[in-house]
Design a protein around this nucleic acid. Structure first.
Lengths: 195, 195
DNA sequence: CTGTCAAGAACGAGCGTTCGTTTTAAACTG
DNA sequence: CAGTTTAAAACGAACGCTCGTTCTTGACAG
């Protein structure tokens, strides 16, 4: 199929990335062979190598996109001024809970994090994503401070970092051991914050 | 060296595991070849395969031991009744901070976690370790409740799970992006808990 | 025709592991 | 306490296989 439309090219690219995600979740980044991935995509070797010039490039592309949707959703929560701090955190936990599933972002994210410690390029991608993700928590913190929902004079940077920690704090436990569920975690959080 | 002492055998085993840890931290679990690991240990192929019958067995052995030291140290903190809840949490964060370094347990733990999602055997090891690690947090929670340092009537399971979340909440940020440092995180934690 | 895209056979490198051989220190012997 | 035996421990060449990638070939829309 020569001189094909641009949307076709993008679709092919996405088809390869979708297959890669499936394989990476099933077998991990490095135990997935190009042949696995190619078979999953239903394409030929040559086709895949037309769109990505190496396996590393595929891993990079996936690392770039793994947290993209999450950032947007976090902003939506942070921008809803009708929510109290605790209500917003509840929505955050509910959001994270949805990511802790084979079709959520979290299992893939864990693969990427492990890789980030090994491959500096992935490390930088992860750092950049983190910076983006902290913004909504900063917003949340500032509003809570202004409303007197937090101890007056508290350092917004420190508090938002600690609030951000709720994400890995909950998700890692939930993903790796199944416990606690979101209601228990929220109950614990509420107990800590309201004494 | 035939009919060699048991301590010699253990030393050899540990020598191999130490080399494996170095390699796994440098290149990851699956990008480390047996030959890398064997070279790092300064042994021959045959020697290594006398002590471990496969690469998987080495990865399993390392997964088993990655959190061992940490559990003991957490218990020491939890057993010190002279500490207030916040003081104990401060010591926990200081402990975790020491694990976020090439010679600490955390970078290896992250590799193991990623593997836990792929390999059910590793998954079970991680789950078992988690159960052990939650015990000191449960102790901490119960004492804090008895002392009135927490909201009366709060569910101890829920609170201890949330407190446990401090570990990944802090460590993951610190490991992957460098920020926040322990003082900032503790300041944020304190601000959340003392309003 | 022409230029783009897809196909898949082929390639060298490196993988995890096996196994026949050599080395070595403890155990046995007188 | 020396000489000999013995079997555990260590060695490393070799194996079959799979890896990521390249490249030649053919198909087809413009």
């Amino acid at each position: 199929m020569p001189r094909v439309s641009e949307s076709h090219l993008n679709a092919r690219r996405e088809q390869i990335l979708a297959a890669a995600r499936i394989c990476f979740l099933r077998n991990g980044l490095h135990s997935t062979s190009m042949q696995d991935l190619i078979k999953e995509a239903g394409l030929s070797v040559g086709a895949v190598y037309r769109y990505f010039k190496s396996k590393d490039e595929i891993i990079n592309a996936i690392s770039e996109t793994v947290a993209g949707g999450l950032v947007i959703l976090l902003h939506e929560i942070a921008d809803d001024e009708s929510l109290s701090l605790m209500d917003a955190l509840t929505k955050v936990i509910e959001l994270i809970d949805r990511q802790v599933a084979p079709d959520g972002a979290f299992p893939m994210a864990m693969q990427v994090w492990a890789e980030a410690l090994i491959d500096p390029k992935i490390g930088e991608i992860v750092r950049n994503r983190y910076v983006e993700m902290r913004v909504p928590f900063r917003k949340l913190t500032e509003r809570a401070l202004a409303r007197g929902e937090l101890k007056p004079g508290a350092d917004p940077d420190a508090v938002s970092a600690t609030l951000f920690g709720i994400i890995p704090g909950y998700a890692l436990q939930r993903q790796l051991v199944g416990f606690p569920d979101k209601d228990a975690y929220l109950a614990g959080l509420s107990a800590l914050m309201t004494h």
